[in-house]
C-alpha cells in the first residue's frame, strides 16, 4: 500500500515536473546533436573521431532515457535494470576496442 502511494506520488511529481516546453527543448537538443554528429563526421579528428561520436551518442541517449522515457523519475529497480544493460554495452565496446585499437 505504501509502495503504491509512493508510486502514485512519483507519477504525479514527474507529470508536474516535465512540461511540454521541456519536451520541445529536449527534441531541439536532439536535432542539434544529430546535426553536430553529421558535421563532425566531415572533420578529421584522427584518434578522437570515435570518442567524440560516442560522447554525442551518450548525451543523446541519456536525454531520451531520462526525459522521454521518464527513467529519472522512476523507481530504483528500473534504474538498476537499465544500469545492467548500460554496463553490458560498456563491456562489449571495451572488448571490441581490444581488437580495433590495436590493429596495425
Amino acid at each position: 500500500m505504501h509502495e503504491q502511494q509512493s508510486h502514485q506520488s512519483g507519477e504525479q511529481a514527474h507529470e508536474e515536473m516535465i512540461s511540454y516546453g521541456t519536451y520541445i527543448l529536449v527534441w531541439l537538443a536532439l536535432i542539434a546533436l544529430t546535426c553536430i554528429t553529421a558535421v563532425v563526421a566531415g572533420i578529421n579528428l584522427a584518434a578522437f573521431t570515435l570518442a567524440v561520436a560516442l560522447v554525442i551518442a551518450l548525451t543523446k541517449a541519456s536525454l531520451v532515457v531520462n526525459i522521454f522515457m521518464h527513467i529519472k523519475f522512476e523507481d530504483k529497480i528500473f534504474k538498476v535494470f537499465l544500469g545492467i544493460a548500460g554496463f553490458t554495452i560498456f563491456v562489449i565496446f571495451t572488448l571490441t576496442f581490444a581488437d580495433v585499437f590495436f590493429r596495425r
Binding site: T88, V91, I92, L95, A98, D99, R104
Partner: peptide, 22 residues
C-alpha cells in the same frame, strides 16, 4: 558469457591483444 565472444575469431584477423584477452 558476454566476455568471451572473441574466441570464435582467433584466426579471423583480430589482434593479438584481443586474442590474449578473450
Amino acid at each position: 558469457g558476454y566476455l568471451v565472444w572473441g574466441h570464435h575469431m582467433f584466426v579471423a584477423g583480430e589482434t593479438e591483444t584481443a586474442q590474449f584477452a578473450f
